[in-house]
């Protein structure tokens, strides 16, 4: 059983922003919204500068899901966090709660009020029929239904951004770490989204609190 995850290898990310552009192009993302962003930490500090691409991490204990007053979020069997734009009321609570700044709102309402929330779908569309125009209009392409992985990861030129089943990604990453040396802990954001091993064990034992 697949558990879809994103992983950004900060040793490889060159801050080209290709993933951002690819995502915007693939899904024809509304003006003013970018579902993915590249963040550079320690910018300009020699030897410490790291870049990474972040979008919705499809969290195990998704804060957006926990705070949504109308319960528009759902999770697929593959661990992808999706939402139903028809039911979204644009309250912005997911935007407050998300650690990664994934949910964004077009300012379409009167007086700049929030429209329907837009976020990364792991290229898995929404509740509409897979590959339909209605789905594309609201959520963009449904690549998973075509047997493809997210566009941002698949076109990453340095293969820093990986997407897909967590175990497959872990295998790839382990091979890399073995080759280049290091501890393999360079997965910024991973623990926040998917929890460390201990947190995960507690969750499966005790349930959410």
């Amino acid at each position: 059983m697949a558990r879809m995850k994103f992983l950004c290898d900060t040793e490889r990310c060159i801050e080209c922003n290709g993933c951002v552009t690819a995502c915007k192009n693939e899904h024809e993302v509304p003006w003013g919204i970018q579902r993915r962003r590249v963040v550079t930490i320690n910018d300009g500090v020699v030897g410490q500068e790291k870049s990474m691409s972040v979008a919705c991490m499809h969290c195990s204990d998704a804060p957006c899901m926990a705070v949504c007053p109308v319960d528009v979020f759902y999770r697929t069997e593959d661990g992808v966090v999706l939402h139903d734009k028809d039911a979204c009321i644009g309250c912005g609570y997911c935007f407050y709660a998300c650690p990664f700044g994934a949910p964004q709102f077009p300012q379409t309402g009167t007086f700049g009020q929030r429209g329907k929330m837009d976020k990364c779908t792991f290229c898995a569309g929404g509740p509409e029929a897979d590959g339909s125009d209605a789905e594309f209009e609201k959520y963009g392409k449904n690549r998973l239904a075509e047997g493809k992985l997210p566009m941002c990861a698949e076109m990453c030129s340095t293969k820093a951004l990986l997407g897909g089943d967590g175990t497959a990604l872990a295998d790839i990453f382990r091979e890399r770490v073995v080759r280049r040396g290091g501890s393999g802990a360079e997965m910024i954001g991973w623990n926040t989204a998917y929890g460390s091993g201990e947190q995960k064990r507690q969750q499966t034992r005790g349930g959410d609190k």
């Binding site: 705070v67 528009v72 979020f73 759902y74 999770r75 929404g126 449904n142 239904a145 047997g147 349930g207």
Partner: peptide
């Protein structure tokens, strides 16, 4: 009431949606 649908790996929780493998391609 629990605030979050507790996620269990490999289960589907939520809204009616076609699964990716239920598409025309698969």
């Amino acid at each position: 009431a629990p605030q979050v649908t507790n996620y269990k790996a490999g289960t589907y929780s939520g809204k009616p949606d076609t699964r990716p493998w239920e598409s025309a391609a698969y």
